[in-house]
Structure formats: structure tokens, C-alpha cells
Simulated assay, not measured.
Amino acid sequence: MNDITDQAQLTTLFQSYGVFGIVWYLVIAIALWRIFSKAGYPGILAIIPIVNVFVLVKVAGYSAWMTLLYLVPIANLIFSIFVAIRLGQRFGKGGAFSFFLLWLFSVIGYLILGFGGARYSPRR
């Protein structure tokens, strides 16, 4: 990185990833907006970066305080699987759907839940 053109090329690379990141976040926010609306929460909360995780945990049926488990290194992976499975149960989906499409490929799963025919059923 001795040349100024090398630095300019690196900046251009980061700008293209930035646009991709914004588009990715907008798709997730749109999907979560629909999920929150189906669950009876205001959809606008899907746009706010950290608040959307709190609301997603509440939609799954856990206390919002449980969101703090995302800060613990190994517990966050285990808890995210639990949230995905419980979210799938709330929308009437099975364990395989929840694990693969709500945990591994969450954007696809959120879009299916939000725009599909799945209905939210609160804790029984």
C-alpha cells in the first residue's frame, strides 16, 4: 500500500460492500416488519438495529432480558438456535424448518414467515 491508487482501490472495495450491507439489512428489516406485525408488535421496531433483536426474542416467547445471552460467547449460538426453534413453533413450523431456514438461512426463513401464510399463535 505504498501507492495512493492502491488505497483508492481499497476504498472502492469497501464502498461496494457497504451498499450490499445496506440492501441486506433492508431485506431483513422488511421481513421482520411483517413478522412483528403478524405477532401484534409495531412493525417499525424492525428498523431499529438492536431493538429488533429484543422484539424477535419476545415474539419467540422469551423475556426480553434473555436477549442479553447474545453477549455471552458460546451461549449466543445455543440461544439463537432456541430462539429460531421457538419462533418456528409460534408460527406453526417444524424443527427442520426452524433450524435450517430460521437459524442457518434466516433471511429466507423470515421472508417465508412474513410473507407466507403462516399465522402467529401466542404462548399456549
Rank of each mutant, 00 (worst) to 15 (best):
M1G: 14
M1Q: 07
D3H: 11
I4C: 07
I4G: 09
I4K: 12
T5E: 11
T5P: 00
T5L: 12
A8M: 14
A8G: 14
Q9R: 10
L10Q: 07
T11P: 01
T11V: 13
Q15K: 14
Q15N: 13
S16M: 11
G18Y: 14
G21F: 13
I22K: 09
V23Q: 10
V23W: 11
W24A: 15
W24N: 10
V27I: 15
F36K: 01
F36E: 02
F36N: 02
F36H: 04
S37N: 13
Y41A: 02
P42F: 03
P42N: 12
I47G: 04
P49T: 01
P49A: 01
I50M: 07
V53I: 14
L56Q: 08
L56A: 11
V57K: 00
K58P: 06
K58L: 14
V59I: 10
A60H: 00
G61H: 02
T67I: 05
Y70C: 06
L71P: 00
A75F: 15
A75Q: 10
L77S: 12
S80M: 12
I81C: 08
F82G: 06
V83C: 01
A84I: 06
I85Q: 01
I85M: 04
I85T: 03
Q89T: 07
Q89E: 15
R90F: 10
R90S: 12
K93Y: 09
K93S: 09
S98H: 06
F99D: 05
F99L: 14
W103Q: 04
W103Y: 14
F105Y: 10
I108V: 13
Y110L: 08
I112W: 08
L113C: 02
G114S: 07
A118R: 02
R119L: 07
Y120V: 05
Y120P: 05
R124W: 09
